[in-house]
């Protein structure tokens, strides 16, 4: 028995392609659908058949890719972050106000903004753990409060400030034919996957999400872990706010709003369980790409807005049904005593 390779005995995560597919069925399914959809878009619009379009999809997806990481981590530990919209706006407004067009203040402004959003994220975590306020309500409240503060700070309008040149260049310039942001994305995804799936910290998050009570008893610092998960979400929002400002050149107070529901949708479509403890970031990235390609396709076809919305809703529901079916198939094998679907207890440590 000792002859088996390490990876094989670990359940074959690295056990070639077959092993990967076996242990990540949902993720693979998401990518298959995404690729199929991409092929469809190529047929719908011949002008999509070039490198540039692929890069465009990545640039458009980049915001959601980053914000969904935070959302996914929070969902992993049985939370939900409804404050991402406000935090993105906050970051954008602050960075534009402090840095303005030049790059002078960038060295202190960017870290400071990231620090602020991370801190607000951690406040969410503190409310959800120490004060025992359900994350849904906690983040809803901080979302409303932060937005209110931004409104007061800007007196209703982010007049001041353009995007710093650095951020502009980050989002729109190319290096060697590839947009700079794509390099950043690759780096981000790499680090994110390492943190979520290969680090001790990530493992602990999974354990916490799978069974908070057991995690507590096993000596994990549940509160600390949850707070850092929310902190990561805040950090990601800070990044996205800056990216958006770089992309559009000026902040608006509503620029974060679309990312609340779509980040949750991306995480869920990507095969994570909204009840926590399950899912991985690559799946989420697949979910984001799926949604982005879908919206590209819909725009290309030029459907009426009503139909676009309907199709988006339908895709979410269908993705859910698909992942629930594939999950059920794997579950039947392991089901022993669970009576139908039992909802795990929420954090009651």
């Amino acid at each position: 028995m000792k002859n088996n390779s390490v990876d094989e005995r670990f359940g074959g995560r690295n056990d070639g392609v077959a092993g990967f597919i076996k242990s990540n069925k949902v993720t693979v399914a998401v990518y298959i659908v995404t690729i199929l959809l991409y092929v469809v878009t190529l047929f719908v619009s011949p002008s999509f058949r070039n490198w540039h379009h692929l890069m465009l999809v990545l640039v458009l997806a980049s915001f959601l890719i980053v914000v969904s990481y935070g959302q996914g981590i929070v969902i992993l530990v049985r939370g939900l972050d409804l404050s991402v919209g406000s935090m993105i706006t906050l970051s954008g407004v602050l960075v534009a106000a402090w840095v303005s067009q030049s790059n002078e203040n960038i060295l202190w402004a960017i870290p400071l903004v990231l620090l602020i959003t991370t801190f607000i994220g951690m406040l969410n975590g503190i409310g959800a753990t120490l004060l025992r306020i359900p994350p849904f309500v906690m983040t809803l409240s901080t979302g409303i409060i932060v937005f209110s503060v931004v409104l007061g700070f800007t007196e209703g309008s982010p007049h001041k400030g353009n995007a710093p040149r650095f951020l502009n260049g980050m989002m729109l310039d190319h290096t060697a034919g590839i947009p700079n942001i794509v390099y950043f994305l690759i780096l981000f995804i790499f680090v994110a996957v390492i943190v979520q799936s290969y680090s001790a910290f990530g493992r602990k998050l999974y354990a916490l999400g799978a069974n908070p009570k057991a995690a507590h008893i096993s000596g994990l610092r549940n509160n600390l872990l949850t707070i850092s998960a929310f902190g990561i979400s805040g950090f990601c929002c800070g990044l996205v706010g800056m990216m958006l400002v770089g992309y559009t050149d000026a902040p608006t107070l509503t620029m974060g709003d679309p990312y609340v529901m779509s980040s949750i949708a991306a995480v869920v479509v990507g095969g994570s369980s909204i009840l926590g403890g399950k899912g991985n970031y690559l799946g989420t990235v697949g979910g984001v790409l799926l949604l982005t390609i879908l919206s590209t396709l819909i725009t290309a076809i030029g459907l009426a807005e009503g139909w676009r919305t309907i199709i988006q809703g339908a895709i979410i529901v269908m993705a859910l049904i698909m992942s629930s079916v594939s999950e059920r198939n794997t579950k039947i094998a392991s089901a022993q005593k669970n009576i139908s679907k039992s909802v795990p207890e929420t954090q009651k440590v």
């Binding site: 005995r9 670990f10 359940g11 493992r203 602990k204 999974y206 354990a207 799978a210 069974n211 009570k213 057991a214 995690a215 008893i217 096993s218 000596g219 994990l220 403890g277 399950k278 207890e345």
Partner: peptide
């Protein structure tokens, strides 16, 4: 309810400590 981490590999369940 207090000890196992359902859905997570047995090896990872052991090594959590």
């Amino acid at each position: 309810t207090e000890a196992i981490f359902p859905g997570i590999k047995t090896s990872c369940n052991v090594s959590i400590s």
